[in-house]
Structures are given as C-alpha cells and as structure tokens.
Design a protein around this nucleic acid. Sequence first.
RNA 1: GGGCGGUUAGCUCAGCGGUAGAGCGUCGGCCUUACACGCCGAGGGCCACAGGUUCGAAUCCUGUACCGCCCACCA
Length: 834
Amino acid sequence: MIPPPNVTGSLHIGHAFTNTLQDIVVRWRRMLGHDTLWLPGLDHAGIATQMVVERQLSQEGKTKEDLGREAFEKRIWDWKERSGGIILKQLRLMGFSLDWSRERFTMDAQLSRSVREVFVSLWEQGLVYRGDYIVNWCPSCVTALSDLEVVTQPEAGSLWHIRYPAADGGEGIVVATTRPETLLGDTAVAVHPEDERHKQLIGKSVILPVLKRVIPVVGDDFVDREFGTGAVKITPAHDPNDFQAAQRLGLPSISMMDERAVLNENAGPYAGQDRFEARKGIVARLQAEGLLVKTMPHSVPLGRCQRCKTVVEPRLSRQWFVRTKPLAEPAIQAVEDGRIRFVPENWSKTYFEWMRNIRDWCVSRQLWWGHRIPAWTCGACSELIVAREDPKSCPKCGGTALTQETDVLDTWFSSGLFPFSTLGWPEKTPDLARYYPNDVMMTGFDIIFFWVARMIMLGMRFGGDVPFRTVFINGLVRDENGDKMSKTRGNDVDPLAVIEKHGTDALRFTLAALANPGNDPSLGEARLIGYKAFVNKLWNASRFVLMNLEGEVAPSFGRPALPLPSRWILGEFDKTAREVNASLAEFRFDQAANALYHFLWDDFCDWYLEISKAYLADASQAPAARAVLLRVLDGSLRLLHPFMPFVTEEIWQKLPHHGPTIMKAAFPTGPEADPGAAAEMAPLMALVTAIRTIRAEKSVDPKKRIKVGVVAPTQRSLLEAEAAWLRSLARIDPLEIRDAAPPEAPQTIKQQVGPWQVLLPMAGLFDIEVERARLGKQREKLETERAGIAQKFDNPQFVARAKPEVVAEGRARIAEIEALLERNGATLRDLGAS
RNA sequence: GGGCGGUUAGCUCAGCGGUAGAGCGUCGGCCUUACACGCCGAGGGCCACAGGUUCGAAUCCUGUACCGCCCACCA
C-alpha cells in the first residue's frame, strides 16, 4: 500500500523520496517474477483538508456555518477531486508503477464500510467508550485533538504567586500558577499532606480572589513540595492533573470557557473576554487588591495545535475513546518476536517506547469532514445506539426520534485500516487472501505513532494477522545544509521543478543514492546535476553500443573463449548484479545505486568501452565484442530500470530482440561465480594507469605516442594478446615486450607494475631533478609503510595472537615493499649514472 | 525529566576490529570521431575529545563536549 497522501494540495519532495524507494522495490520484485501489488490511494485527512477549505471560504468572507454542513461537505468533495487529481497526475509523472485499477480513497463507500465495521466491533468488544474527560482542544479548529496532534514546546511565560486569603480572616495561602485566568474555575487549593508549611490548612477554607467563592484546602501527594509555593490551585475543568485530582477527591468542576476559549457566564465580570485578554485583566486586578505576591519569569511547556499552531486548551468535554492497552499488547509482541521487522531495526525501540506507555486514543473530532461516528441517541429514553446500519428506531423503547452523533472520526482511524480496508475487508475477497498481510510498508519516521502503530494494532485485531512483515522507515529530506525543508524557510524543493530541470530519472536516482538508512538525506542541486550527468552518460554509452552494432553480432559466445577484458567486464557485471540484489534485499538503495554508478561509469565506460574500440577495429574480434557490449548494456539497463524507468525503457526499445517492455524483463541476478578475471585484469589496468601517471607527471604531450618497454619475465603472452588496447589506452607506440631488462637504460623511468617492469625512455622529455625528487618521495612513503608494519612484527604478541592470514598478509606486503624499494633504488642509481 | 541518533577530506556522506573511501568541489593537462553533462592525472583526513578492552580501534566499552530528533501531566 502506498502511504496515502493527504488531499490537501500537491506532493512535495518527501513524497517523491519515499515513493521512489517504494517503486524501486516494486519494480525490482516484479522483474524478479514476483506477484506484486502497489496500491494507490488518497487520504481524506480530516482536519487538515477541512482547514484548507475553511481558509478558502474565509477569503470569500464566508464560514462553514454560512454554508451548512451538507453544502460544506460538498465543497470539500469538490476540493478533493481537484487536489486528488493533481496528486495522481504527479504520481504518474514520477513514473510510479502503481496499480491504477485499484485506486482507493479513505472515504470511498467500501472503505467507509470497513471503518464502520471496525468502530462498531470495537464498541461491542468494549474497546470504544464515550465519556467526559479533559482533552486537548483547539479553540481555533474548534475540535478535540489526540495527544499526538499537539506539539509541545517550552515558551517564555510567568509564574504568578497569588494569595488566597483564609475564610476565617487569616493569611490564607499563596499558590503559584502559570495560568492565573483559570482561577475563575478553581474549586480547591491542594497542598502535600506532609508539607509542614501548609498541612495545618487542610480541611480549612480559603476565599477565591475575584469571585470571592469559598473553596477548601485539600491534601494530595501529587503536589510537588519543591515547586513554587508548594500549594497548587485546582481547576478541574481546565487542567488534566487537576481533573484527576478532583476525581480522586470528589471536587466539583466549573467550566469557565467556551469552545473558542472565550470566558463564559461562570467567569463573572470577565465573561465574554478572550482567555489571554482576561489573564491581563485578572493579573492587574490581583495586583490592585494586593493579592499578587510576586511574578517570576518562567519557561512553560506550551502545547500548540499541530495544524494551526493555536495554543491548545485542556478542555472538559464528551468524547469517544479507543481503549488502547488491549490492542497494544499483541502489537508489541508482534515486533518483539519478529513477525514484524523494522528497518532500520533501531526504530523498533522508538515504537516500543511509545507503545508501552500508550494512553487511550481520543478518536472523536468536532469536524464536518470525515467518517461520522455511527452512534445515535434516542430522544425518548436517551439510549446510546452504536450500529452498523442506520437504525430506524430505538431497540430499547422503540422510539423513532433518533439523533445521530455529529462528531467524525480521527482521520488516522481510517488510514489505520488501509492495509486491509483497501482489499475489500470485511468481505473475504480474493485480493484480501492474496495480498494480506502486505510484505513491506514503507514510510517516514514522523508517522510511526500516528499511522504505523495504529495499523499494527488494528490490523492484528481485524485483519487476522500482522498488516505487514517489514516496515521500512525512511528519513526526512533536508536541504543541502541539512536543514529541514519548509515553505516558510523558502528552502523547500518542488519535485515538478526538479523534474523540469533535471529529469525524473535523475531525481529518482539521486533520491535513491541518498537513501542511506537511518539518516536524513540532504538534497542539494550539485547531487542532482551529478546524477543527471549519469543519465546522460548512460545515454551516450548506449549510443556508442548501438552505433557499433551495425556489423555482425555473434549470436552467442562461450565465456572462456573470450579475451580477458570481455571476461572481466562480464564478471564485473555479474558481481554488480549480485550486489544490487543483495543491497535491495536489505533496503540499501544507496549501495545499490552506488554499485551501478561505479560499474557503468568506471568499469563499463571508462575501461571496457575504450578497450572494445580496439576489438571493434579488428574484424576477427568484432562480432564477439559486439555481443559482449550488447549483453552488458542490456543487463545494465535492466539493473537500472527500477531506479530510472524512463531512459532505460527508451533505450531498451532500441535494442535488437527487445521485448514488449523492460518492466517485465528478467532482472539479472549475477548467478555466475567470479571467474577470476578481475585478478588477471588488475595488473593490465595498473600498467595503463602507471604509464598515464608518468606521462601526466612529466607533462608529456597527451597526443604523442611514446615508446614503452615492458620487462615480462612471466605472463608475456597475456601482454602480447592484449597489446592492441594497451597501446591505445596508454598511447604507446611501439610497445616492446622483453624477457629481461636491458643492461643499460639511461634516462629511463623504471617502475614495477604487478609482475612486470615498465621501462619508459624519457630522453629529452623530462627533468631529471624532478624525477629524482619524485622517486625520493615514493621511497619515503614506502619506508614509512614498512616501518609501520615492522612495528607490528616487533611485538611478539602480534605474531602469536593475530589471525594467521593477517600475519601472512603483513609478511607479503613487507616483501612487496622490499621489492619496490629495490627497483626504486635501482632507478635512482640509473638516473644518477645518466 | 526520559529515550534515540549524529560528530570521518572544503561540502554531502559511505565504511563499523587489521594504520581510511565515494560523489561533488579544488589543482594540473586534454575538444583522443559515445559523451566537455566529457577524458586523463594529482592533491587533500592525528576518523570530536579523554580514558579503557585488544597483539591491533575510525570501527567495541565508559565518560565528556557540542549538534539533531522523539517522548513526557511539574502547577
């Protein structure tokens, strides 16, 4: 299942990222021949979407109340069509291979039926209850919020010390509060029962300032003696702690604010004022009456609405809750025993942390957009009816005056069912049997609690199994400085703009290459430019291959008969294929992308393509070379296809004998073991590099072909066989292969490369002093390395306790260094002699 | 207050027990008929700090310092 995007606008780069990774997995598995489903969907996103539309209305000078519920819902549906349309278009533009025949929306009739079924079942199982509790309330959105929808941050505030005089005329008690306005709803003052300073007041009464109500002093050990004055005012209707204390102590609640945080009739002279306005007035009045003892600056944790940033008000109200503990237990267990695996594994800790301290979930929202709670109240007998089908009459008294609950469900309630509601549940559909549980769920860490945890809880309860076996958690895309992207910062990246500028394939490949698990990717333009160049490189390499396919192409080839470089590139290709498969199996998109990048660019383009030019020029070698080029290009396109679907399909269609689509071509798995060609090939490549380096260091004209001798006491035939491309890559003419070094070699650079010694006569081409300095430097480096290794051997413990192969390796390297130093010394002597 | 990450080349990041790698950037040279979105070559790091374990630590353990994230009812 795709994590369904909210129909609040269009997709951002974060969607592009997570969905790209999903598409890579899906395309890869599909090419491997697996039965794959990636189901597209959209989320109605209750509060977020309603806010968007309300904002539009307010620009027209209207409110949703002006329209009425029905017209307002219609208006949101219109918006949903528009936003959803944009999103679906974007998903297609990104090349995501979703199954469009199964597109779902969380408010589809079928999904709504699932929602109702689950809600009613939970009710029947005693896991849903309705009650009056303190909930997080957004006075601007005018709805309850779950704990997760509140963002708490410390903000600068004050701690006011206020005197509550004793009813009997005594001094009374000083309380400390950060919210003086709520004293209007106080019904007690609490102190710690063992607090020597205050305990004698317990049972006595004090006079509430402003309203002059008489309230009791009570004892309760939830009071922290260290904080403030050790006395706390109790406002049960406006503070969760106080609410609980009041329940324990049997204190009454007085609500003094309405749903928009405007003070109500219980606020006496302050009725009608906004909460913050009232605060100022009350503080001033306390000051005037001499009841304000002191005011201290104080940092207070302030909760704000996740959506609109308004300061959340704890509010006593009637809400619907899901009892989460019974749901959480099996959900915890499923992760503990490995039936569900988090990738990276570390996220399971975060999951456990939250799940083990889970609190009941407030699922009712006072919104108009969403799944209306299927509950009715009988006008005659007040019976609460929760039912799958709209009831016609009260089952208890037969009354027909039923009113439906106006609240809707938290949007995450329906998305929590997504892994099975989208497959037709509660019907036992073939799709459900075939695709539930999902194999993989891929999403961001920001919704582990909101979504992943709920899917697991609800999926296990109602789906009959875990909803998915693996949860892959990707990071959050940041800008090139590692800063979080946001529209307000102006550093956000619009995927469409990137596509316009660099191409979809480049964007996808970049995102994949950045996806190292556990880290947040930093998306900078430089990276995009680099990978756009890679796409271009692939295009040009393909052009080269296609261009050279003109002549005869060997219909098949036996690998052992091929020249070394061809065997080598086929071996490297297989190795890469194995690496890509292994990396993708572990969700290491970065490793897979890097392996492909390195193979295609370095091995294939920089080496093999150049080498092949020599073969293509030779009629006897060309057919086999063409076949190898074609084989490697075809395989590379397949390996790259999940990452860059567009170019790979385009090129693949130009290949001879191509199928209908590369999407369904077999994915290479690189089954063959490394034939050892890499080890043979290495010294030849080193030879070319060594000669190029010498040329560059000596500033030999790059166009000039120079004479080079190679002393080859062994492996002479290999050199002879591969001489043609060696000459062209290193720009050599002639290449003299000899059994032994000449007795004299004046003004000649000598360098050991693998089993061979290179002799590069530099007569008149270089500065002896510069060369002597270079050799000196090289000598120093070798000696330092030798000393380092020798130091290890000085330690008898090393030889005794280190792994034998490590010791052997050290010995071998010393011998190698000795040999190199020997050559180096000889060359230095020769230079001196000349 | 709890928990989780990070600190490696100028930048973004791999590596996670055998004395360091990539991409981009930098420097030098090349328009060598697939590609200048390119080719060839070079330089660049006491792997945050301090202890410990080990024959051996960027890599394991402990602590410290910064940076980031998440959770939490101190009025």
